[in-house]
Amino acid sequence: MDLYFLGTGAGLPSKRRNVTSIALRLHDERGTFWLIDCGEATQHKILSSPLSLSKLEHIFITHLHGDHIFGLPGLLGSRGFQAGEKPLVIYGPRGLEQFVETTIRLSETHLPYRLWVSVIDGGVIFDDEQMTVTCRQLNHGIPSYGYRFEEKPKRGKLRQTLLQEQGIPAGPIYGKLKEGHDVALDDGRVLRSADYLAPPTPGRVVTILGDTRPCDSAEELAEGADVLVHEATYAASEWERAQNHHHSTATDAARTAANAGVKQLVLTHVSARYDEEGEAKLLADAQAIFPATTLAHDHLIINVPRLPG
């Protein structure tokens, strides 16, 4: 599991940063990747990345401002040439379904795959045997959401040495115990799976927030996350401007990370007003509050390691 940053700028694309889009790569876990936001030219960024649209499984849209959705029509059309009939689900706020349907219809774009738009309104929006995705509304000028991607714990390894010490030979019994099933032996003994499995490995948590002022929902979504991705549109010296435009500063992001007890903070959605020196100041301001902070740039990869239980 890792994060691949396709676009890290705010509002307008620049020569150094494209507008917002992040891929959550789940190649080892699912053989796919999920896309969070799809600003203009996202598919062009994908062309210069290791990603392939044929592996795209889900899209999660945080809000309907153009720098987060204007890349959708082109990407959806191009995916049809690469992914065949593989279905695709897009999650996002109310109005997204109208935007997608209208652009596809008016452009007469033919999609050879099934496309669903799932309207979100908070709570659990996706759940299967591997992942749970929860969203909450944040504090922005229009409805904007954050997403918490939570991997389910991985069952512990089978303690084969213990079984061998008890005279139980390798075979189907091992497989049943590993799958979590208790096994009754011919001699009357019952082997409890829990007694022969190592502690489970905790699942990883990634929280990616849409545009927002500091708010309780952001901290709730980020609680204990391995990685928090938070906007840092403005420097601390422009706090009032950030408030007026419904955004956060780098120090706001750092305080959210500290309050939520996350392991790593990644700043993104950086205004084009900042040159390299200004960006260094953004990072320094955040690190003064939360040292484990990284400033994202286009094509940055952030690994999310699986920690032992």
Rank of each mutant, 00 (worst) to 15 (best):
I173S: 07
P153A: 08
C135K: 14
A286E: 07
D2I: 02
S118T: 14
L221D: 01
R159I: 09
L307G: 00
Q137M: 15
R25F: 04
A222C: 04
Q243T: 08
N139R: 15
H245Y: 10
G95C: 04
P153M: 08
Q82E: 15
S144C: 11
H140W: 15
G146E: 03
L72T: 04
S248L: 05
A292I: 00
P291W: 04
P291G: 05
A225T: 03
L64T: 02
A257Q: 04
A222I: 09
F70D: 00
T32N: 09
R192I: 14
D28C: 07
T161E: 12
E276Q: 14
A242K: 04
R213C: 02
P214R: 07
Y91H: 05
S107Y: 06
F126L: 15
E40W: 02
H299S: 12
K281L: 14
G175E: 13
Y234R: 07
L158D: 01
Q287K: 15
M131N: 02
E276A: 14
D216W: 09
Y91G: 00
A284Q: 12
R16F: 15
E85F: 12
L75M: 13
L185F: 11
P50R: 12
L35H: 01
T103K: 10
T42F: 00
R148D: 02
F60G: 02
G210N: 09
T20S: 08
G210T: 14
S49L: 11
V205E: 02
T251M: 09
C135M: 14
H110Q: 11
P199M: 10
A258H: 09
L307K: 08
L51A: 08
D186C: 09
P13R: 01
A10S: 12
R136M: 15
S21T: 00
V89T: 13
L64C: 02
E108Q: 14
D182N: 13
P87G: 03
K45L: 11
R16N: 09
D211Y: 07
W34F: 12
Q130P: 01
H230M: 14
K281E: 11
H65F: 03
N244I: 04
I142C: 14
G84C: 08
L158C: 01
T161L: 05
Q160G: 02
L111E: 07
Y113G: 03
P291Q: 10
G7P: 01
V19G: 02
G261Y: 14
V190R: 14
L56I: 02
E108S: 13
V206Y: 09
L138Y: 06
A253Q: 10
A225N: 04
R17L: 10
D226S: 13
T134G: 05
P50D: 15
H245T: 06
D2Y: 13
A296E: 05
L64W: 10
E57H: 11
I104A: 09
S78Y: 12
R25K: 12
H110I: 12
D186S: 15
I22P: 00
F149M: 12
Y274D: 06
K176E: 11
R241N: 04
